[in-house]
Amino acid sequence: MVNDFRLVRPKTLPEALGLLDEFGQEIEPVAGGTDLLVKLEDGRIRPSQVMDLSALNELKQIRLVGEDLHLGALVTHTAVLESPLTRTEAPLLVMGCRTVGSTQIRNMGTLGGNLATASPAGDSIPALVALEAKVVLASKKGERTLPVEDFLVGPGKTERRREELIKEIILPCAREGEKGFYNKLGQRNALAISIANVAVWVRLGERKNTLSRVRIAFGALAPTVKRGRMVEDALTDRELDEASLKGITQLAWKEVAPITDIRASAQYRRDMAIALLYQSLYHILFLS
């Protein structure tokens, strides 16, 4: 059952950061609330203060800044799906956000919240890691920027300090010759937590069926969303056909460190790293 707490609702980012500076240890920020409410309901957390961020309109913007796309921390998954900017500049992120929860959860849940929760299975995160996105953290003392990959430390653990808020996420805009694919395996087709997922970003090579750059991020297959650098290297600058793709993607097995839980065994998850990666690359190379 939800405990009683004091609710604060700052109107501006400086106000929010001031509150965090003052009460950082006991204040729980809430964006969409899709994770926090579950934890409150079953008593896993009992905060004395909750800071509702929903009035911080400045963190709800999606903007083009030079070659980069800046997404405010309070941009919802639905906003990502509906924005013409993300559709053209970050199609891989759109693919990931489309598989988050249900319509209701996508309407409430935010990119910043998904990152802060840092679930290894979070569906928006693999795209951010594969796109080498950065996260901007703000505190009363100033701002710092980290690669999303480094920001994530473990299940539910991040580099965010108590006095910091996620301000925005910065990712490079999609360019000609780049492609992406997000492949998720869940227990069903909606409202499903990933058993395993993979986001793949590539730059097509000049020769047919080659890739000059590859970035792969595995979800639900390690304590955090995990880059697959070995397999990225093996895929780069070589001619790929179905057979070689089959062979190289086997390397994915070595990139991941999954667990056994209610949804699947570790062994199955390892095999799914290979299967999902193979399917993703097949889509990119031979079906699109």
Partner: peptide, 16 residues
């Protein structure tokens, strides 16, 4: 019980 609620007890949705 290892499946305690509807996040772990999976029933079909319209997309299934």
């Amino acid at each position: 019980f290892k499946t305690m609620n509807l996040s772990t007890y999976i029933i079909p949705t319209s997309l299934d």
